[in-house]
Design a protein around this nucleic acid. Structure first.
Lengths: 217, 217
DNA sequence: GTGGCATGTCAACAATTGTTTACTTCCCAT
DNA sequence: ATGGGAAGTAAACAATTGTTGACATGCCAC
């Protein structure tokens, strides 16, 4: 019937397609089981391709992990690119909910799965650092100011909460957290972010609170 | 010189001592590197004993992990035994700070390192579940009440934040979070817990907030 | 059609893993 | 002191891991 090979259809041999299949399978495995618990044969089986192709397309298992990390970092950078403070909760909820609860399996969780590779650690640390600074900036952070360090610390605690949530949701069946929808998460996350980065909640008496976060207004 | 063997001194052969050495070494490795990245030879070398003793004393690597998990769970249960709501932040700060920043390396982080073992997952899930319920109870939770589910969800988010903080602190060098002292962490954590579990912060207009947590007073 | 090259498969490799077995060494009650 | 058993050691085991090379197969330009 079909005289010419339809380009949109499934070709029997397509390098970019199998490459992508490997990336998808690897991302899911790495995010759920971690780096060293995942074997290249697992990934290849999930992707439905031969094991040797991992070495061919990504040079090594670590290369594949680095590629996964790169795409995860890209997506994170894109979806968290300077969100205003009052949209942070929505953004985290979207990330931890998986955007489709199936299609994209938790870049946040993946970002945190150690690989033993030093470059991966550098990438991870860089992302965390810039994310924290961006978040702190949205909360009024300016380096050098009095109290700047604590504000940055608070922003990093927000990141820690987001990562912890992503990990708990993707590796345990702790209900109701594991099955919570994005909508379920927004309100609590808003309170979490607000408590950490919002204006100081009118501390009546406790003497602590050294230089609370500078009010945005 | 020494005629009789001094019991308080270091005997050359002491089963309980080497057993404890193995436990300590294993807990550190598991918490920092995860289960599958840690080899039994690593642990044995850290403890300064022979590899075969792991199988002798704990039957297997998984048995050793289970033993570590059990002690961690014990310590967690003891140190978080029904703390009042206004002491939760201190408790989390103490846990994530490591109580001595060196001696006890993060039970929280260890609690979360997957092992692939089904029993370990059960233990972990049980601890998380009861911890969440205890925390929610301290915040006024009563099962069945309207809004009870969201309050439990909020308590579990506190746990996620604590675990994320512990993991971030023990596996990255993200400053200032990684080097923050227990005292540095208390105030931000108090705001985090307060934001999630405290009395609803006098929401002026947003229609959400379905049945906020019942005020303690 | 057909040659050439990209794509995919198979089998084997060396290294590492957890575990076991046989053996040695030390402590202690007799 | 001395035999017996506990404590520790060394070497080897099978299984699994990541990786590689030689080989098969399909697709496209000509």
């Amino acid at each position: 019937m079909k005289a010419s090979p339809p380009p949109a259809e499934h070709r029997r041999r397509d390098a970019s397609r199998t490459r992508q299949a490997l990336l998808d399978a690897a991302r899911g495995r790495f995010a759920r089981d971690g780096y060293s618990s995942t074997t290249v044969r697992d990934i290849a089986d999930d992707a439905g391709v031969n094991v040797a192709l991992i070495s061919r397309y990504f040079a090594s298992k670590e290369g594949l992990f680095a590629a996964c990390l790169a795409t995860a970092v890209d997506e994170l950078r894109r979806s968290t690119g300077d969100v205003p403070l009052d949209r942070v909760a929505e953004s985290i909820a979207a990330q931890t909910a998986g955007i489709g609860s199936g299609a994209v399996p938790n870049q946040l969780a993946l970002l945190f799965r150690s690989s033993g590779d030093e470059r991966a650690d550098e990438i991870r640390l860089g992302v965390l650092r810039t994310s924290g600074e961006r978040l702190a900036t949205a909360a009024g952070w300016q380096p050098g100011r009095p109290g700047a360090d604590e504000l940055l610390l608070r922003a990093q605690l927000v990141l820690a909460a987001a990562i912890g949530t992503a990990l708990l949701r993707s590796t345990t069946r702790l209900e109701p957290l594991a099955a919570a929808t994005e909508a379920d998460l927004v309100a609590p996350l808003r309170d979490l972010v607000g408590g950490l980065l919002g204006p100081p909640p009118a501390t009546p008496d406790p003497p602590g609170h050294p230089g609370g976060p500078t009010p945005t207004a």
